[in-house]
Design a protein around this nucleic acid. Structure first.
Lengths: 358, 358
DNA sequence: TTGTATGCGTTATCAA
DNA sequence: TTGATAACGCATACAA
């Protein structure tokens, strides 16, 4: 650990802009202007101010700055489950970008209904953030209204339902269709999708879009619609495990399974392993997300750029904060306020052609 | 989604304490006192203030409050990799507790050296937080000094090296010994530990403690010291995979592997699966953490209460903020400022007795 | 380009 | 118990 070994000045927390001003022999407005990067400061004074500030290890008081300017310098990030890989990865990407721009990241984890309704009812974000970044969640009407009432820009990540808001995401429908095409091309005819429940408020939009994509892919491949072609269980490993167990009670086992998420796929794989069904010999499995542990499970999956979604969303937020009217203008060279990032199939070991005897 | 459907008042963000005071017919001091829960306010005035505040949907300005009181109402949480399950889970626990107490959670992700040194050199936390919560990281001397210079309480989670600071964690050494005892009891004599590199700044203390625990457990079980009984690779799935590959080139395969973390164990399992070695028939595997996906891999592991560590640490932080001198006093009924939480063995399918012919 | 002066919305001190 | 009022530390409109 050779980093950050530089010795710091005494760094008395009580150094104010007045101290810097008097040490530099200028007024506090000049200090303020200099430190905020305004152009109209002469070179020599700028230098003097910078020197004095660094000598004194001056750090402006965020509270005072916020009070005077009205800007909070903070972005509120609303997330359902920080502990889940996807959310955490988005947060990481956003944090990187925000920190770089000097913004604070206020985390609001609203997985349980209690804290969620608390967030939207008492709105603790009010006056605390310059903008809001909401990760993979669908808002109810009133929630959405509450958000608008904040009067700050709102950017969403990865929720298809919230069109109309600035945001970044992927094309869940097309991506799901990609998975089906992959299986169809391998020769699979009996494909089942396992997904979370669409009435689950969490990721509702995502679930619906991926289900639609599955159906689309099936139609494209000329495969017949089956009544039970989509099995739903609560989202997660357990759900996947249970769904696969249900499939094991059917008259005929599908030759391939498309899971709405890698976590669900893990549950599917677990059940298949337990009963000794070969993957992909007996059943092929495709996941979705390219979860960090997908390589460890050798899982074929649809990869999406999670980290980048966080970064881009954060940049959109910053742009909107800088210019609130820019919601519909170009962002980062792209056309619209809704950025759609590409996905791709990652072929690993859980997919292959169906066995001839199937 | 039936929650948070309550209609909100107009909620003009520009309502100040003055408006509440005039509507209630009292002075702003009375409003302030009432809202901050001071005792010396008469019942009727209190009621009037509360009514007026709620009518106007008044929310105090955090910036003004912070400027006047000197308290920021925020806790800085320093984390290496939010995207990893352990860290994210601790954050989740901490967030719950902090939010409940009305504190903001400022997230600082310092995985890469650049942002880490930036954090400790320019100390953006200064004046922004009332306390710091550092998750599973070892500080260098200068980093530790920089932290102290902040002049706010610091609480650590899950790092054994940082004794001397208030914190909460587990007994990594004893827990690792537990894993070894489990294997020894099953009859294993040839056990190898796979761990991250001890010169990796990340989780250095944890790694060292678990290695020490491994050696302790081996001695206790009367098993001979072997020169190569600990294999180190960079922490993570890839490291585990590679370490297991290295084991496959040895003259004799161990009958059991103890992985420093579940992620490492996943890599080990992947390699074993690839070469067709039966688990636990040919090789038993024990992990550490009880990662959320450990059940999916049917991994025997040492479970630690991650979420609770976050919660307890947050509560320690809050106690210290309330009474900075309380560092060495009782916390939550426990004796010392360093809380050690219990761990336990979770037996799943990756451990069993060694095959007779081994 | 530079400095002066006012305001930002609270909290806290002090008299009453 | 209540109410004036002085900080709190900075940004900014305005004057110079």
């Amino acid at each position: 650990m050779t980093d950050s070994e530089t010795v710091q000045p005494a760094a008395d927390a009580r150094v104010t802009i007045v101290d810097v001003a008097s040490r530099a022999g200028v007024s506090i407005s000049t200090v303020s202007r200099t430190l905020r990067g305004h152009r109209n400061v002469s070179a020599d004074r700028r230098a003097r101010v910078l020197l004095a500030a660094s000598d004194l290890a001056y750090v402006p008081s965020p509270a005072a700055s916020r009070l005077a300017s009205g800007r909070t310098g903070a972005i509120g990030v609303i997330v359902q489950f920080v502990a889940r890989w996807f959310f955490a990865e988005v947060v990481r990407g956003a944090e990187l970008e925000l920190r770089e721009a000097g913004y604070d990241l206020l985390l609001y984890n609203v997985g349980d209904p209690a804290s969620r309704s608390h967030l939207f009812q008492t709105m603790p974000l009010r006056r605390r953030v310059d903008a809001v970044l909401a990760i993979a969640t669908s808002f109810s009407e009133s929630e959405s209204a509450a958000l608008d009432r904040l009067g700050v820009p709102v950017v969403v990540v990865g929720d298809t339902v919230s069109r109309g808001r600035a945001g970044v995401g992927i094309d869940d429908q097309e991506s799901a269709a990609m998975a089906v095409r992959h299986l169809a091309l391998l020769g699979h005819q009996h494909i089942v999708m396992i997904s979370g429940c669409a009435d689950d408020p969490i990721g509702r939009g995502t679930t619906l879009a991926r289900q639609a994509g599955f159906r689309l892919g099936m139609r494209e491949a000329g495969l017949p619609e089956r009544p039970d072609q989509i099995v739903t269980e609560p989202w997660g490993v357990d759900g996947g495990r249970r769904a696969m167990e249900r499939l094991l009670t059917r008259r005929q086992l599908p030759t391939a399974v498309f899971a709405e998420s890698d976590e669900i796929a893990y549950g599917v794989l677990q059940t298949l392993r337990r009963v000794g069904l070969d993957v992909p010999g007996a059943v092929s499995v495709v996941g979705f997300d390219d979860h960090e542990l997908a390589p460890a499970s050798d899982l074929t999956t649809i990869a999406q750029p999670v980290h980048d979604q966080g970064r881009l969303a954060a940049r959109m937020v910053l742009d909107l904060v800088a210019d609130p009217g820019a919601a519909d203008q170009a962002v980062d060279g792209r056309e619209r306020a809704h950025i759609v990032l590409p996905t791709r199939l990652v072929v690993r070991g859980t997919t292959g052609p169906p066995r001839k005897d199937s």
